[in-house]
């Protein structure tokens, strides 16, 4: 894989490889010395057209933990906010010798264009493009779900992650909120489905896109019914942007109070879930709107852990995109036949 742009079309093998690599990266992050020499001499550019301090810091940390040089190229106060085109910025990064470009952009497809327009030859990692995709968010969500809900009983006490190699078969995940505008929802629907989980989207009909019927998931307009009757193993709350409700005749729901009553996650709804179920949120949260403080801070909330896992997942993505030699990553099928068995070997050996 040369780029990581979308979870749609990501193979199950690749998804599990990403999660397994994330697990190994996470293991190194509990050490005193968290830094690995792996990407020494490589340059990672964080190209952010949209403010997201959290995501940028997560990628920056990941790159630095792998010893890569990190250049932060933010739209604010730079030429990109003065009308410099995406193309010219890409040519600049190319001239600077960027090995990987982590791009966050308000326009859907910007990462795809950077990767495929021929402007630069760096690996492109999509850190969120418009309403389209945010693949590392979905991977860290899947990683968090796997850690909590798969294979914990098999923990051998030696610190090995017993969920390594596993998928999410049979798990039920509810994704609740503004699906229409959410790249997090789009990324998760495809990735979780690929990993074998069942997904139900829960939202008012105004926040479900026309055309959703081709997505590999169910859609419900009722949160309580979904929680009670479907009993999800994980509930993922999506951020509701305040501007979406204040559009007068264009508002997507009548009032924040009504939204909160019908789709907000709180302690009462948490109590309906199975005991093992976890609560997730990609952040930043609107406490009191889509999630109550009691639910967000509950022991079954894994929201803080999601942030920590984000670094490990982004380390894994950077490692897998940047460590191989280009020729073999792009073309090699020569060792395909041995590859699957080797990773199996690896696991059974441990």
């Amino acid at each position: 894989m040369k780029h990581l742009l979308t979870t749609q079309g990501l193979s199950k093998d690749d998804a599990i490889l990403l999660l397994d690599t994330s697990a190994q990266m996470a293991a190194t992050q509990s050490r005193e010395n968290k830094k690995l020499p792996t990407l020494r001499g490589r340059t990672v550019v964080n190209l952010f057209y949209e403010d997201s301090t959290r995501t940028r810091i997560s990628f920056e940390t990941a790159a630095k933990r792998l010893s890569a040089d990190v250049i932060n190229f933010s739209a604010k106060g730079s030429s990109v906010s003065k009308g410099e085109s995406l193309k010219d910025t890409a040519l600049t990064l190319h001239a600077m010798g960027a090995d990987a470009v982590v791009v966050r952009h308000w326009a859907s497809g910007a990462a795809h264009q950077l990767a495929h327009a021929g402007w630069l030859d760096a690996a492109v990692l999509n850190a969120g493009d418009g309403m389209h995709q945010h693949p590392t968010q979905a991977l860290l969500d899947a990683f968090t779900i796997r850690r909590h809900l798969v294979g914990r009983v098999g923990d051998d006490g030696r610190g090995a992650d017993a969920s390594v190699g596993a998928d999410l078969a049979g798990l039920r995940i509810a994704i609740v909120g503004d699906v229409l505008h959410s790249r997090v929802a789009r990324s998760n629907v495809y990735l979780l489905h690929t990993l074998g989980a069942e997904v139900t989207l829960v939202a008012p009909p105004t926040l479900v896109p026309v055309g959703v019927e081709t997505w590999p998931c169910r859609v419900s307009y009722h949160l309580d019914e979904t929680l009670e009757q479907w009993q999800p193993d994980a509930v993922m709350m999506l951020r509701v942007q305040r501007e979406r409700m204040s559009g007068g005749s264009g508002a997507f729901f009548p009032s924040p109070m009504e939204y909160s009553r019908k789709f907000g996650f709180d302690a009462r709804r948490l109590a309906v879930l199975p005991d093992h179920a976890i609560v997730m949120h990609p952040g930043p949260m609107n406490r009191g709107l889509e999630i109550s403080a009691a639910a967000a801070d509950h022991p079954r909330s894994v929201i803080v852990e999601q942030v920590a896992n984000g670094v490990a997942v982004r380390m894994a993505a950077l490692y897998l995109l940047l460590s191989g030699d280009i020729a073999s990553t792009n073309s090699s099928t020569s060792s395909t036949s041995t590859s699957t068995s080797s990773s199996t070997d690896e696991r059974t050996a441990l």
Binding site: Q8, S108, M131, H132, R186, P209, V210, G211, V212
Partner: peptide
């Protein structure tokens, strides 16, 4: 606005 716009995240023109 339809199947493709829903997947690729572009605002639809119904």
């Amino acid at each position: 606005e339809g199947v493709v716009s829903a997947q690729i995240g572009l605002t639809g023109w119904p």
